[in-house]
Design a protein around this nucleic acid. Structure first.
Lengths: 203, 203
DNA sequence: TTAGGTAGGCGTACAGCGCACGCTTACAGT
DNA sequence: ACTGTAAGCGTGCGCTGTACGCCTACCTAA
């Protein structure tokens, strides 16, 4: 009956991510997103309740792209590894949004679906009860932590250079940073995940 | 020669944490901290360059309280576990500051000292080169991730209740949430950490 | 074809933020 | 007692999120 909507929540999410990718986290504002869409600021409030929800919608859009079907005919640990790496990859596509991803992940349906999928794999592998709780937590914990570290770390990125100067106070850290600089981050992630899965494999 | 300072960076940190603990993260502002100290807003800028530095000082104050001496005559994995739990404990004392702790940890001298201490333990345990890099990363990654999850998780706290309602869409997740609710969070952290350390013990 | 109701779009305004600037003022050394 | 120095802070600016209410495009019913 009335005038039809001209936008969608998804369109807001895409615009927010465009601003984020182009101008950084600090530049994300209701005005900026509205501008990106060529509409007035207050029009956005027809699609989201407030800024918080806009952020949540953007994060959901990032994570909705991860395929939660574990690869058939792979061992359970490989399946978990693949699922974890898919999340890492999706998040890595929007590095400026990492802090938002962290703060909104817990209300994100896609991540719930992902958790359900991981639990499916674990269940099929024989995990039950508290053991299964711990298994999910340790995998998700490592995933969250590793992703955070990768995008603002003392051992990689800008921190590495700044820290090699502190060799005298922190010799081991400086040496470690040097070695870490030679390892591609995806390899580092995979090897750390391998450690976690290795710990889960034993009784 | 001139008028002496009446405050210190530490005093700002304490005031900021007081505001944080009492009124939450959103209430932390330069005005609020100045009020807490009974001084004018702009006076704070004699002690910190900007709000960002105030946050960093507060985080440093939180983490400066962790003892980085590993317990003598314990096995290396126990030593690492103790060091990790000390950080968790320190962070947990100011739950409202967790997001700040995450975003400022990488410029925090106390955490560098902590990393140096962990590397010392790992080195004495025989870890070298890339293996040692991975070991530190996986421990720190789990620590960071687990701490984040503990303070805003889909499996604990308010999320648990909200999610048991979604049993139909996410049956495994709902069941897991129920089981998780019965495990004290420090036990959960310890058992997850045990998985990680178990993974580090092999080859 | 026209009139009316519904809801989309948005202009305005306000409280709060971080902080640049420059004045006032308390102190220490001569 | 005088003076140089830096602490303390009042004012103001540009920005934020968003409450409120007007205007108007659209779809339906007559």
């Amino acid at each position: 009956m009335p005038r039809p909507k001209s936008l969608t929540q998804t369109a807001l999410a895409v615009a927010a991510l465009a601003v984020l990718d182009r101008d950084g986290l600090a530049a994300l504002s209701m005005r900026a997103v509205a501008n990106e869409l060529g509409v007035g600021t207050m029009s956005l409030y027809r699609y989201v309740a407030d800024r918080d929800e806009l952020e949540a919608v953007a994060v959901e859009h990032i994570l909705s792209q991860v395929d939660v079907d574990p690869p058939k005919k792979a061992l359970w640990d490989k399946q978990v590894a693949v699922l974890a790496e898919r999340v890492r990859t999706a998040i890595a596509r929007h590095p400026n949004a990492v802090p938002l991803t962290m703060s909104h992940r817990h209300r994100c349906p896609s991540l719930l679906r992902w958790g359900e999928a991981v639990l499916g794999v674990l269940t099929r592998a024989g995990f039950t009860g508290e053991e299964r709780v711990i298994a999910l937590r340790v995998v998700l914990g490592y995933l969250i932590g590793a992703t955070e570290m990768e995008h603002r770390s003392p051992l990689a990125g800008e921190g590495t250079d700044a820290m090699t100067g502190l060799s005298e106070k922190y010799p081991l850290l400086a040496e470690t940073a040097g070695v870490a600089g030679g390892i591609p981050s995806d390899v580092e992630f995979r090897r750390g995940l391998e450690v976690v899965l290795s710990g889960l494999r034993r009784p």
